[in-house]
Design a protein around this nucleic acid. Structure first.
Length: 442
DNA sequence: TCTGGGGTCCTAGGACCC
DNA sequence: TCTGGGGTCCTAGGACCC
């Protein structure tokens, strides 16, 4: 545990709404609500003027409209927010190389990485003052709230105490007493479900939590959560500030204005989502092995189905094909309100390296899994794709020197399922690279 | 007035391997 | 011949965060 309050938590005030007010002077001083503006929309951010009417993040836009009909309701402009966020984060990085963004509008800054040591409460207060001024300058007038302390937990909670445009530095040594009178829900990770369980054990404040022994806590909320909560309650938090956290998954989802029942429509929507996921993977130079389809029923119950490929892919066609299969296996009776497609089990992957080496590289069939998968029933398990002169082939079973292939044209099965010996010259003849991977000058 | 979209982390059971 | 414990991978679901 460090002894000076050298971790800052910086939180931009009503970020999305503030950007809109910055860009449209007519909105300044007025209630502004940013979020989904459709029938099933939800509020992302409400300006402080709108909060006076009880409008809050995560509230349905319909409810927000009834509470504050005269507010300006705006869809989110993420590109603009991203750009502003970048400028703000740059100011933090100018202060310290160790910055951990949590979202577009929030980050931890570790001042110990600046070489400054023995910082006092006043020192940190002054640094926060300067940072806020730099942020205001770089962002075209946005305000931020800053919390500081000896840990992430303390900094994060402190930044919430004097919003908007405030600074709270918690003196070292006072952390446990600082937390004690607060509700347990101030601890990040304690949401409604955990709060409910704790309340049944008579725990409402952090002071109550500090009294509870770890074993009892683990019984109530599980082992990982319980032991981390036990430590956080007494402000024992040595989590490091980490820049460059790895992306673990990439996904796209959409809630429909009305519940959808039509499988072919859903299939087409899923294809488009697969393409968007693929684009984002490629942009980030990532690829992944697990494809997940998410469905939400009319009653809001949510289901996921996933399938893990033999190797990583960022190919829209592969993602789309697996997603289509998973969707076919999903129950959509009664209609679904949401569909999502995602890819996880990510690996770094430099896309070009696979194909640019040789002129006409054959698919290396010896690289296919040795063991056949058990469920080879016509749809499983979509392990890899080959491309042929007349369509796309889907390798769906292999082993013992044999490969089973179903060919498709534009996603539709074309011709029978065929099985080849790995060294069958006809198979070798059929296997070609897709047109877009061929050198353009030949 | 029903509940977004993008994520992270944890749990639990079954398969499989040693 | 029988029993078993641990580790890893996969799938599904849930809690939580901004």
């Amino acid at each position: 545990m460090r002894t000076d309050p050298s971790i800052l938590h910086v939180d931009l005030d009503a970020f999305f709404a503030a950007v809109e007010q910055r860009d449209k002077p007519s909105l300044r001083g007025k209630p502004v609500v940013v979020g989904g503006i459709g029938l099933r929309g939800v509020v992302s951010t409400a300006s402080y003027e709108a909060r006076k009417y009880g409008v809050r993040s995560a509230m349905s836009t319909a409810e927000a409209r009834s509470r504050c009909p005269h507010a300006a309701y705006l869809g989110a402009r993420f590109d603009v927010y991203r750009e502003t966020s970048k400028a703000v984060m740059a100011q933090m990085r100018a202060l310290s190389p160790l910055v951990e963004p949590l979202s577009l509008d929030e980050a931890f800054v570790d001042l110990s990485a600046t070489g400054l040591t023995g910082l006092t409460v006043d020192d940190v207060h002054a640094i926060a003052e300067d940072l806020k001024a730099a942020i205001r300058e770089a962002s075209g007038g946005l305000t931020a709230s800053v919390g500081a302390g000896t840990s992430k937990l303390i900094a994060k909670i402190a930044s919430d105490l004097d919003k908007p445009d405030g600074i709270v530095v918690v003196p070292p040594g006072t952390e446990a007493a600082f937390l004690a009178p607060m509700q347990v829900t101030v601890i990040p990770g304690v949401g409604p479900a955990t709060a409910q369980r704790l309340s049944m054990a008579g725990v409402r404040t952090v002071a109550d939590l500090q009294q509870l022994d770890e074993e009892e806590l683990v019984r109530q909320v599980g082992s990982a959560h319980g032991s981390s909560l036990h430590r956080l309650a007494i402000a024992a938090d040595d989590r490091a500030v980490v820049s460059d956290r790895e992306t673990k998954s990439v996904s796209v989802e959409d809630t429909f204005e009305t519940d959808l029942l039509d499988r072919s429509l859903l299939s087409a929507i899923g294809d488009r989502m697969a393409h968007r996921v693929s684009e984002r993977l490629q942009k980030a130079q990532l690829s992944g092995r697990t494809v997940t389809v998410k469905t939400r029923m009319h009653d809001f119950t949510t289901h996921t189905r996933s399938s893990t490929l033999a190797g990583p892919t960022d190919d829209a066609r592969v993602i789309a094909r697996v997603a289509r299969r998973l969707l076919e296996e999903s129950d959509i009776s009664g209609g679904i309100r949401l569909l999502g497609v995602g890819v996880s089990s990510l690996a770094d992957w430099i896309q070009d390296d696979l194909f640019t080496e040789s002129e006409d590289p054959p698919l290396d069939l010896t690289d296919l899994p040795e063991r056949p998968r058990e469920r080879v029933d016509g749809y499983h398990p979509g392990q890899d794709v080959i491309h042929t002169q007349y369509g796309e082939g889907w390798v769906w079973g292999s082993g013992r020197g044999r490969v089973t292939v179903r060919f498709e044209t534009a996603g539709t099965p074309a011709g029978p399922v065929r099985t080849f010996a790995v060294d069958d010259p006809e198979l070798t003849k059929l296997v070609r690279q897709p047109p877009e991977d061929e050198p353009t000058d030949t």
